[in-house]
């Protein structure tokens, strides 16, 4: 076999290996999604969305409190995390020059790689120990801390895309700088920032580890900030590692609800970005 043929064969072989690797990577995704959809759909019912969990051994029941609890936790996280994150992003984009801004940027980047369970310990020692019990507030704070770096960096990146001529136009009209930032710059970047926030919320909604010992769990409804609260991911975990058939069924159904929620937010965020890209 001459050298040319050999090179051809290696080329084809290597390309085939890359295609095979891609197919191999898709297998688990398809398997996870297929199982979640098939087993999850089998466990869905009306009462699943409206009823409280039943004690062990009794059929039926649902995870209504966990669904609501997840929404409450994500809501608390948004209220705490989004304004801080957006303002920090504004600082980096509009005022951020020099060493302090570099440090903030670095901290945000590094923070996004810190394991969420470590954030859980941080919030536990900060809030749970001082309040002496698990609480929805602690869970919300943990999720807010997890969202913070993403929101900050997305806001910065998007505000940097806003052309300077818009800022100059505002300033030339005699508008104070802070109003220019809020009314012109932020408004221009808003759709993109919304995308970033949605991605951060989607990630936070699926987090389990930091909630295990901050929000803990609750078998009943809870509207209180200082009581433990149920959430979908923790409920899935509890049900999945339990020995009961009925709870396994509900774990799959809850997983379906969670995955649909998270993927919808992700897909929505991406569509939003693409629509914006095209209109430019």
């Amino acid at each position: 076999m001459d050298a040319y043929r050999r090179r051809k064969v290696i080329d084809v072989g290597a390309r085939a290996a890359c295609v095979a690797a891609t197919l191999l990577a898709v297998v688990p995704l398809v398997s996870v999604l297929a199982y979640v959809v098939v087993r999850g759909a089998a466990g869905l019912s009306w009462s699943f969305f409206t009823a409280l969990p039943q004690p062990v051994g009794e059929a039926g029941g649902g995870v209504a409190n966990a669904i609501l609890g997840s929404l409450q936790l994500v809501g608390i996280a948004c209220v705490l995390g989004v304004p801080v994150g957006v303002l920090a992003g504004i600082y980096l984009a509009e005022y951020g020059r020099g060493r302090f801004a570099t440090a903030v940027r670095y901290a945000a980047d590094v923070m996004s790689g810190i394991p969420s369970i470590a954030v859980g310990i941080f919030v536990y020692t900060l809030l749970v120990l001082s309040m002496r019990h698990f609480s929805a507030l602690a869970g919300g704070v943990a999720l807010a801390v997890l969202m913070l770096p993403t929101v900050t960096r997305t806001t910065e990146e998007l505000l940097k895309l806003v052309p300077d001529s818009l800022r100059e136009a505002g300033l030339a009209l005699g508008v104070p700088r802070w109003r220019v930032v809020l009314k012109v710059v932020l408004r221009t970047g808003a759709p993109g920032i919304a995308t970033g926030i949605m991605l951060a919320v989607a990630r936070a909604a699926g987090e389990t580890a930091p909630l295990l010992f901050t929000a803990f769990n609750n078998r009943f409804w809870s509207a209180s900030l200082v009581e433990p609260i149920a959430s979908l991911p923790v409920q899935i975990f509890t049900y999945a590692v339990s020995p009961y058939e009925e709870w396994h069924r509900q774990a799959w159904a809850a997983a379906l609800v969670l995955v649909v929620l998270v993927l919808l937010m992700n897909a929505g965020a991406r569509v939003l970005t693409r629509a914006r890209g095209r209109s430019r």
Partner: peptide, 22 residues
């Protein structure tokens, strides 16, 4: 690329559930 990124978006507890039963 979209599909590969969706993989990253699935919550870890769902992978765990799949791990336990599949």
């Amino acid at each position: 690329s979209f599909v590969v990124e969706l993989l990253a978006a699935i919550p870890s507890v769902v992978y765990g559930l799949w791990g336990v039963f599949v």
